[in-house]
């Protein structure tokens, strides 16, 4: 655990000493809850349509697949046409594209970023390495099955997937969202203990709260 996360005594500007336990004091430790859809079917349908037509991708290139995300946003492929755009902060994004292999070190950051996103949120796994390890099936530092650690809505296979494949994948994701089948965030909340156990099995140095709001 890092030094700045340990319990310590801090002297405030007014000279009063108080104890700080960063993990408890700086974070909210409430667990996620399953969020019910709207009461009216037609309202939920409208929202699902809007969600499908406005996909905001978190700007986090976790692996080599990130290199094909840039052509996706530029003249040749121009995913903006389909309402897809980048957001630099996880709070505002609702799609997490895991662009390729995940090393254990990145997985920790990915989980943290994912949990900061707001429900409903979606995960797309890119490339063979998120599916079954791909090229790195024998690597000591990359995970092999993304869906053990995060609820994945869709996989796009290939090494690496072409931008056309990505576009096709996003259109497929839109269909899932519009049909109300992309409920990854609720699935994560419902099976929270299972996901957390899997994550902690890989990440030994768990120096963050169980759920990062």
């Amino acid at each position: 655990m890092k030094a700045e996360l340990e319990k310590r005594l801090v002297t405030g500007p007014d000279g009063v000493e108080f104890e700080v336990d960063p993990l408890r004091d700086y974070y909210c430790d409430a667990l996620p809850e399953v969020q019910r859809p709207a009461y009216l079917r037609i309202v939920e349908d409208l929202f699902n349509w809007a969600r499908a037509e406005s996909i905001w991708i978190l700007g986090f290139g976790t692996g080599c697949g990130a290199i094909e995300m840039r052509p996706l946003m530029t003249p040749r492929f121009d995913a903006y046409r389909y309402g897809i755009q980048w957001r630099p902060t996880p709070r505002q994004a609702n799609l997490f594209v895991i662009s390729g292999y995940l090393s254990v070190k990145t997985l920790k950051r990915v989980i943290r970023s994912y949990e900061q996103m707001q429900n409903p949120k979606y995960v797309v796994g890119l490339g063979s390495c998120t599916l079954n390890g791909g090229m790195y099936f024998d690597s000591y530092n990359t995970i092999k099955r993304l869906d053990q650690y995060l609820p994945v809505d869709l996989y796009i296979t290939g090494c690496m997937p072409r931008p056309e494949a990505l576009l096709a994948g996003f259109l497929e994701l839109k269909k899932l969202i519009r049909a109300g089948k992309a409920e990854g965030a609720n699935q994560y909340a419902a099976n929270f203990a299972w996901y957390k156990a899997n994550q902690k099995q890989v990440i030994h140095d768990w120096d963050m709260p169980d759920y990062n709001w």
Partner: peptide, 18 residues
């Protein structure tokens, strides 16, 4: 570029986040 109505969709989506 984005469709002209894109901002409406984004707005609805953001109001509809749970």
């Amino acid at each position: 570029g984005i469709p002209l109505w894109q901002n409406y969709v984004d707005l609805i989506k953001n109001y509809g986040q749970r």
